[in-house]
């Protein structure tokens, strides 16, 4: 305990460019989480609609696709893409972007990382959205049909706005999980916060003016950064959930296999 809180062991934060470099890495994680979430929302909605389709073949294929991807470990998917995708794809990306993007996005492996995050999270989001749509009373869709609205119009104007609104808190929870999961892309050699911290811990002289940091304190500091941001997100999720329950009187559906969906306060 003495070792942990000894001020000598915390001096590294204010030395050299340590703090700036770690925060820059953290920003990469946030950026990647947001980019992946936007794509996951788009593809997730398409997948959810395909799964709910009246066409049995489409529904079966979408269902199988969703169930396979969301039941695989995310790190396994990321490594699989990084190693099994053709290297030409990564080179094409590197030539395409050159030095026009932040350094973390210049490596071709970012394609594998983003692809993995989006495929996994769109499957999860599809399941979340499907639960939201299915939880809506049948009468809503039937009433829309009785009023003469065609399928797509009743989806767009009646079912989706209500069904998806119910899943906003679950979506924010998934964003927390996604935010944590972005650290996994350090394993496919993307320069994000953990890589940056490792650089500071080893005080790599080629990458900047760093002062050696003790790993326990350095990684704990990174952990606390995540706790801070995710805590704010989870407060937001809770508040949205309470508001929604007051408005609709419904409970958030739980979804199999996702850790963050179980925490709905009773």
């Amino acid at each position: 305990m003495g070792y942990l809180v000894d001020p000598e062991n915390w001096k590294w934060i204010t030395s050299g460019s340590n703090l700036k470099f770690i925060l820059e890495g953290f920003l990469v994680n946030i950026e990647i989480a947001l980019i992946a979430m936007v794509f996951a929302l788009i593809f997730g909605l398409l997948l959810a609609l395909a799964r709910l389709s009246n066409n049995k073949v489409v529904s079966f294929i979408a269902g199988a696709w969703i169930d396979v991807w969301r039941n695989l470990p995310l790190l396994f998917i990321l490594l699989g893409f990084a190693l099994a995708l053709p290297g030409a794809l990564f080179q094409a990306w590197e030539e395409l972007v050159g030095k026009s993007v932040p350094i973390a996005f210049q490596s071709g492996r970012i394609v594998a990382a983003l692809l993995g995050l989006v495929i996994y999270n769109s499957a999860v989001m599809a399941e979340i959205m499907r639960a939201g749509i299915v939880s809506l009373e049948r009468g809503q869709g039937e009433a829309a049909a009785a009023l003469g609205l065609p399928y797509w119009k009743s989806m767009r104007l009646v079912v989706l706005p209500q069904g998806l609104r119910r899943m906003v808190p679950a979506t924010v929870s998934q964003l927390i999980t996604l935010n944590k999961d972005t650290t996994l892309i350090s394993i496919v050699a993307i320069r994000e916060v953990l890589k940056h911290t490792k650089t500071v811990v080893n005080a790599n002289p080629f990458l900047g003016d760093f002062v050696k940091a003790p790993p326990l304190q350095a990684y704990l500091f990174v952990g606390l950064l995540f706790v801070l941001v995710n805590l704010a997100l989870s407060r937001l999720s809770q508040r949205l959930e309470i508001k929604q329950r007051q408005a609709t009187g419904t409970k958030v559906e739980s979804i199999t296999g996702i850790e963050d969906q179980v925490a709905a306060p009773a």
């Binding site: 070792y3 942990l4 927390i176 944590k180 999961d181 972005t182 650290t183 996994l184 350090s186 394993i187 953990l194 911290t197 003790p214 790993p215 326990l216 304190q217 350095a218 990684y219 704990l220 990174v222 952990g223 995540f226 706790v227 995710n230 805590l231 989870s234 963050d260 925490a263």
Partner: peptide, 23 residues
């Protein structure tokens, strides 16, 4: 709140790498 919001990989770095060099 601590263990739910920290990435598992960061936790592994703290416990395996951090504690080892702390003794």
């Amino acid at each position: 709140e601590f263990f739910r919001n920290i990435p598992l990989l960061v936790l592994i770095y703290i416990v395996y790498d951090g504690l080892a060099r702390g003794g």
